[in-house]
C-alpha cells in the first residue's frame, strides 16, 4: 500500500495548478502502468499522485499538414496499426505492439510511456528518430520541446514544476522519399529490449542520403543519436549500398558504451547496436523507396 494523497483534477489547468502546488512531491499518473512499478519498487515516493484519468481533451489523434498530433492519454493499443492510417507513424507502429502485453497496453498511455523515461523505452527511441516534439502545459502557458531534449536521462525529463505533457507531435515528411523504421532485440516477448534502434532517412532525387537520424536505446540513460553513423551516410549513396549501412552499424557500435545489466553484458549490447542499426536503416530505405 502506498501512503499518499490521490487527487483527480478534471482539466489540464487544474492538473497543472495541483502539480505546481505540491512541487516535487507530486507525480502524474495516467494509465498507471509505469507508475505502479515505480511505486512498488520504491523508485518513486510521491506525497501526491495527480491522476489525469478525468482530464478531458487528451485522447485525440489529429492529422494536419504540419504533422500528426497524439494526445498524451492515447493508449498504446489505440496506436497499434497507426501506421496504416498515418503512414508517417510507421516507426512508432513498429514498437507499440511489442510493449509488454495486451492488458498493459489497454491502460498504458503514450504520455506515460514517454514521461517514465525508461532507458530502454522503444517508444522514445522511435519518436526521437521521427523528430517528434512534446507539448507541455504549465501555469505560464504552453511550450514545445523536442523529445530528445525532453528525456534527459534514465527516468529523468525536462518537465518543470507544474508542467503536464499534453501532446506529442510527429512532424510530416514526404513519404515518397523518406521513411523511418525501428528494430529491437528482446530476450522475451513483451520485454524491454536489450537494444532498440530507430532510423529515419530521406533521399534526394538521385537516391543519395539527404538526411538521416539513427537513435539508439538502452545504451545510455536517454536515447542517443549515433552521430558518427549519421555522418557516414549523410550525402552519400545509401540505396542498395549494404556496405555503407554495415559501416554505419559498426560506427554506431563503436561509439556506444553501455553498462552491463542482468539482461546482457555491455559487449553483447554493442554487437546488437551494429546489427540493429543496419537493419533499421535497411528497412527505412526499403520503405522510402517502396
Amino acid at each position: 500500500m502506498i501512503d499518499c494523497h490521490y487527487l483527480e483534477p478534471t482539466s489540464v489547468s487544474e492538473a497543472c495548478t495541483l502539480l505546481a502546488e505540491h512541487g516535487d512531491g507530486a507525480k502524474v499518473v495516467a494509465g498507471g502502468q509505469s507508475m505502479a512499478i515505480l511505486l512498488r519498487n520504491g523508485l518513486s515516493q510521491p506525497s501526491h499522485l495527480i491522476s489525469i484519468q478525468h482530464v478531458t481533451g487528451l485522447e485525440d489523434i489529429n492529422a494536419s499538414n504540419e504533422g500528426v498530433t497524439i494526445g498524451a492519454k492515447v493508449t498504446l493499443n489505440r496506436l497499434s496499426g497507426i501506421g496504416e492510417t498515418h503512414p508517417t507513424l510507421r516507426a512508432l507502429d513498429d514498437v507499440v505492439s511489442d510493449v509488454a502485453d495486451q492488458q498493459i497496453r489497454n491502460f498504458a498511455t503514450l504520455g506515460g510511456a514517454i514521461c517514465e523515461a525508461h532507458p530502454a523505452s522503444d517508444i522514445t527511441v522511435a519518436l526521437s528518430a521521427l523528430h517528434a516534439t512534446v507539448k507541455l502545459a504549465g501555469a505560464n502557458g504552453e511550450r514545445t520541446v523536442p523529445i530528445c531534449d525532453f528525456v534527459t536521462g534514465a527516468f529523468a525529463t525536462a518537465a518543470g514544476p507544474g508542467e503536464l505533457l499534453t501532446e506529442v507531435v510527429v512532424p510530416s515528411f514526404d513519404l515518397a522519399s523518406a521513411a523511418a523504421a525501428h528494430r529491437r532485440f528482446a530476450l522475451r516477448a513483451g520485454d524491454y529490449p536489450v537494444v532498440g534502434v530507430g532510423a529515419f532517412v530521406s533521399l534526394d532525387g538521385s537516391g543519395n542520403c539527404e538526411d538521416v537520424r539513427v537513435v539508439i536505446g538502452n545504451c545510455s540513460g536517454a536515447p542517443a543519436h549515433a552521430q558518427e553513423a549519421e555522418a557516414r551516410l549523410r550525402g552519400n549513396s545509401i540505396v542498395g549500398n549494404n556496405g555503407a549501412l554495415a559501416e554505419a552499424g559498426e560506427l554506431a557500435a563503436a561509439h556506444v558504451s553501455p553498462a552491463d545489466d542482468p539482461m546482457a553484458p555491455s559487449e553483447y549490447k554493442i554487437d546488437l547496436v551494429s546489427v540493429l542499426t543496419r537493419e533499421a536503416l535497411e528497412e527505412a530505405i526499403a520503405r522510402a523507396t517502396a
Binding site: I37, L187, R188, A189, G190, P262, M263
Partner: peptide, 14 residues
C-alpha cells in the same frame, strides 16, 4: 534480477 520482469521465464511466444 529478482522480479519476473528481469528473471526471464520464457513466455508462450518463445
Amino acid at each position: 534480477n529478482a522480479s519476473l520482469m528481469d528473471y526471464k521465464i520464457p513466455s508462450i511466444v518463445e
